[in-house]
């Protein structure tokens, strides 16, 4: 739980130690994390693909999908297989957060941050499940449309490929944003080469973002 709380606090812009946190807010966060876990309709779907990686393009075999991306191509340089995944916390949570923006904005903000923390945790769990499917293999970092040079409109391909609308109720808007809002899609490479992946997820990303956590050296 404490890792989740830490993560939620980062999203809320809290930079100090957890034990300095106002007790009331701490309890509220714990309560909200529990509520989301209990009431959200958390669902996911994954699918494995063999890939061909050439000319800075990832070609998913037995499908009509290609991802043009230098960054993704580099990430998958040692992978012959990938898993494509989608996770969502469901539409009811969106409705709940929206309702709180009218009655209790502070609660809405905490819900929003806690939901983001939970979906990250769910993605980590999913990674563990994926790795179990491939004994003696390793996973690359997760990669999503919108990272680096992989354009956001690639989201359409993933949504279509996994039939997320029908299977987990995940759809896109005309601007390629996901509904429900608390949703994540990602691609992860399966490799035989163990890579030194930093425990700090922020080291894997090059976005200039205010939530960035620095690794202590």
């Amino acid at each position: 739980m404490s890792k989740l709380i830490r993560e939620a606090l980062i999203y809320m812009g809290y930079r100090k130690k957890i034990n300095e946190l106002d007790k009331e807010i701490y309890n509220e966060i714990v309560e909200i994390l529990n509520d989301i876990k209990k009431t959200a309709n958390i669902s996911y779907i994954t699918k494995d693909f063999d890939i061909e990686n050439k000319n800075e393009c990832i070609n998913l075999l037995n499908s009509n999908v290609k991802f043009d991306s230098k960054n993704l191509s580099k990430l998958l340089k040692d992978s012959k297989k990938i898993t494509v995944a989608a996770v969502t916390l469901g539409i009811q949570l969106d409705k709940k957060i929206k309702k709180f923006t009218y009655t209790d904005m502070s609660k809405a903000v905490i819900y929003d941050a806690c939901a983001s923390a939970i979906i990250e945790e769910k993605c980590d769990e999913l990674e563990n499940m994926i790795i179990n499917n491939f004994p003696e293999h390793f996973l690359t970092n997760r990669f999503s449309p919108g990272y680096g040079d992989l354009e956001l409109n690639n989201q359409k391909k993933i949504i279509n490929l996994l039939q997320t609308e029908k299977k987990i109720g995940l759809t896109l808007t005309s601007g390629n944003l996901m509904i429900p809002q608390k949703s994540v899609t990602f691609i992860v490479g399966i490799t035989e080469v163990e890579k030194c992946t930093s425990k700090n997820k922020c080291d894997r990303c090059n976005a200039k973002c205010e939530f960035r956590v620095k690794t202590r050296k």
């Binding site: 809320m12 100090k16 904005m105 609660k107 905490i110």
Partner: peptide, 14 residues
């Protein structure tokens, strides 16, 4: 001064 953080500031505003 980071004595309070976002949810608390919002609570006061609300």
């Amino acid at each position: 001064k980071q004595e309070i953080f976002l949810p608390q500031l919002i609570k006061s505003a609300e």
